[in-house]
């Protein structure tokens, strides 16, 4: 009896967890299918009063939501590429090369991830203004390095440290240069780790709101979160379109998570310096 009770309790808990995680998505989906009129009336049920796709049509036909999607992908993608390249190089140096002050370097990288993003906004704004870089892609890619580069470096250092050194050693015994060893022997083995770091770097850049809010000035440069918050004209906030936009913006993220869940989990735990 007691175990039955315990097991039921356990599954109730599991159900609560899944509901808390996923039900808000259902609600936003339901609202995105509701007409504007219904959205302004008290809610009457768990299903839309009348199913409609107008908000989805509007975000692509009227608001050109494709543009922020592309902007976000481009900016997050570029940040990821730069972070992974710089991060892999640094990680290889830290994990494999006999350099001094490793703890110091890793400590510094970690320290940077502790720097408050909000404190960077002002100075970067002024510097970008001076360079006439506000409202450009680089005004996002560069600050996003603060978000993505520390964690990529940490993850990759941890991953590279786990790869057995024997293979590289054998290659070097065969007379391969450092460069050849890295590119031909090491890189293929390290690829899964690099991929993990890339996913996390991408998600972290994709998630930014503060930098985009501060450095982006015209609607055609909006990233996804910024565009969603700005779905409005001078007077009118388009709630239906916001809901539809949230659904559209969440889908790719949900897919990434579903397919790459284990990589993300291992990367997250490695990146936060698990001993």
């Amino acid at each position: 009896m007691r175990t039955w009770f315990g097991r039921t309790g356990f599954y109730v808990l599991v159900a609560v967890i899944i509901l808390y995680s996923l039900f808000p998505f259902y609600w936003v989906f339901k609202s995105s299918m509701e007409s504007s009129v219904a959205l302004n009336q008290p809610t009457t049920g768990m299903l839309p009063v009348q199913w409609t796709f107008v908000h989805y049509e509007a975000i692509f036909a009227v608001e050109n939501f494709l543009r922020p999607l592309l902007n976000s992908m481009l900016v997050a993608g570029l940040t990821t590429i730069v972070s992974v390249i710089l991060g892999s190089m640094a990680a290889y140096g830290l994990a494999r090369m006999p350099i001094k002050g490793k703890a110091l370097i890793l400590g510094f990288v970690l320290l940077v991830s502790f720097f408050p993003q909000i404190a960077m906004v002002g100075p970067l704004y002024l510097v970008f203004r001076h360079l006439h870089w506000l409202n450009t892609y680089q005004s996002l890619v560069i600050p996003y390095l603060i978000l993505a580069l520390p964690i990529t470096t940490w993850i990759l250092t941890a991953f590279f440290g786990q790869i057995p050194v024997d293979i590289e050693e054998a290659a070097m015994v065969d007379g391969a240069s450092i460069r050849q060893t890295i590119l031909k022997v090491f890189a293929p083995i390290a690829l899964p780790g690099i991929f993990t770091a890339a996913i996390l770097g991408f998600l972290l850049s994709w998630n930014d709101f503060l930098f985009a809010l501060s450095f982006i000035q015209s609607p055609n440069m909006d990233t996804v979160p910024l565009a969603l918050v700005n779905f409005r004209n001078a007077y009118y906030v388009h709630y239906g379109q916001i809901y539809a936009g949230v659904v559209v913006a969440s889908l790719p993220i949900a897919l990434i998570v579903l397919f790459l869940q284990q990589r993300i989990e291992s990367g997250l735990t490695a990146g936060s310096v698990k001993g």
Binding site: I17, L22, P24, N207, F209, P225, A249, I253, V257
Partner: peptide, 23 residues
């Protein structure tokens, strides 16, 4: 369970705020 708790984590904070605001 593992997948469903990870999805909220991956959603941008601003989007999460919008979602709960409407909730």
């Amino acid at each position: 369970v593992r997948a469903s708790i990870l999805i909220p984590w991956a959603i941008p904070t601003a989007v999460s705020a919008l979602l709960w605001k409407m909730f």
